[in-house]
Amino acid sequence: MSQRRPVTAQDVARLAGVSQSAVSRCFTPGASAAPQMRERVEAAARSLGYRPNLIARSLITRRSRIIGVALGYLHNQFYPAVLEALSEALQAIGYQVLLFTAPQEGDADPRIADILRYQVDGLVLASASLSSRLAAECRASGVPVVLFNRTTAGDDGTESVSGDNEAGAAMIAAFLVAGGHRRLAYVAGLENSSTNRDRQRGFCAALAAHGLAPPRIVAGGYDHTQAQRAAALLFASGDPPDAVFCANDHMALAVMDAARHSHGLRVPDDVSIIGFDDTAPASWPSFSLTSFSQPVAEMVAATVGLLVARLADPDAPARQLVLPGALVVRGSARLPARGLVTEAGRRIWRPQ
């Protein structure tokens, strides 16, 4: 049997009565093409079964139109929401996402090196990091790298976008103090992550500024099972806390379940529980979790903006962006006497 010859852009151009360059413009995101000509070209392409060969185009343009995204883990519902928003934002400007998972701890370089073999135009690392050596290699090859929800010193040419972790944790401390809490605990994330480091520093510093003793700190590792073990250590002790701040919602929900079902505690009557990220389950009535909301839409827009700017000017100085969030107040914590306001349908705490 003879093999059918692949349909080419020249075939589409001949049927539509336009030039081959016109066909190329019609299938290039952002390229200028008259609406009538675009309709004619797309109709011809449909009738012939034509699909642009993006691999062939990348050989000509030296751009794959692919952004590699490395995620440390997807158990935390913050990151699926980020991935969906990031994919939509990149697709809107003609890029596609190539997803990889990377270890949260240890050396992520081998996985990131795999991504680079796919000739991606840029890298977004969420809850993952890379060595200074590989950062230098990316910079030398013109591949911009943006850390999402992580921070960096910026001296390796890597850019970053994060929420204001330190200020958010400090606000949580002030909120709990204003609500009359005096025995506080902190369920920490990964010890070496910048998010955990900043949240722990902000929380402890704010408690000290209010004249309170340091919180009891137990490791949760950003993991549901570890957070349940941390809850057992806290609530089974002779002097359990009256408030627990968890370094993310994923752990806060585990601590809340342990408090209620394993230790018979009432939330918030016996213990207040607060998370960080304001993921979708935080608003579910069964949890009603008070949580510091990270501005996902703004963080994603900033990440895409950094990628596009660096692709246009590889020699531009690296930038580290920190975006403010808000403490969304629900039913998992005792309320302070003042400072609660409603904005855009959310009850938030804004101290005077």
Rank of each mutant, 00 (worst) to 15 (best):
E159Q: 15
S127E: 14
T101C: 06
E105T: 10
D109W: 00
A188R: 15
A108C: 10
E191N: 15
G189V: 10
A136Y: 06
L134S: 10
M171I: 14
L116C: 06
G154P: 07
C138P: 10
I115E: 09
L184Y: 08
N149Y: 00
V146K: 05
V97Q: 11
D155A: 14
L134V: 09
D155Q: 11
E105D: 00
S127I: 10
S127K: 08
D121H: 06
A167G: 14
L134D: 10
D156L: 12
A169I: 11
V177G: 05
T101Y: 02
S141D: 05
P144C: 08
T151L: 13
L116P: 00
T195N: 14
G163R: 01
A178N: 01
E105N: 05
L116R: 02
E105A: 03
P103D: 06
E191I: 15
V161A: 04
A140Y: 02
D109P: 03
S160Q: 02
G180H: 02
R133G: 15
V177L: 04
A188E: 12
A135Y: 01
A185I: 01
M171Y: 11
H181S: 01
S131L: 03
Y186H: 02
P110A: 02
R111L: 09
V187D: 00
C138M: 09
D109S: 10
S127Q: 12
T151S: 14
R182C: 13
A188N: 12
Y118T: 11
A128P: 08
N192A: 15
A136E: 13
F148N: 07
S162R: 07
I172E: 05
N196Q: 11
G179L: 00
N165T: 09
L184K: 11
A178D: 09
L190P: 08
G157N: 03
A108H: 01
A188C: 05
R150H: 02
A135C: 08
A113E: 15
T152R: 01
A170F: 07
G179Q: 00
A185V: 01
V145D: 04
A173P: 11
L98H: 04
A178E: 03
G163P: 00
P103Q: 01
F100C: 04
E159K: 00
N192M: 07
L190I: 15
D156S: 07
P103I: 01
L176F: 01
A128Q: 07
V177F: 06
V161C: 00
G122D: 03
G168Q: 05
A136M: 04
R111E: 09
V120L: 06
T152M: 05
G163K: 05
A170P: 13
A126Y: 03
A140F: 06
G142L: 08
T151I: 12
A135L: 05
N165W: 08
A169W: 05
Q104D: 15
S131G: 15
R183E: 13
L176A: 07
S194H: 15
P103K: 02
Y186E: 03
A126S: 10
A174P: 11
V145A: 08
R183L: 05
T158R: 10
R139Y: 13
Y118R: 02
E191K: 12
L190F: 03
A140L: 13
L147K: 07
A102E: 02
N165F: 13
L98N: 12
D155K: 05
A128H: 11
G179Y: 04
V143A: 12
C138A: 04
I112R: 00
S141P: 12
F100Q: 03
L98P: 08
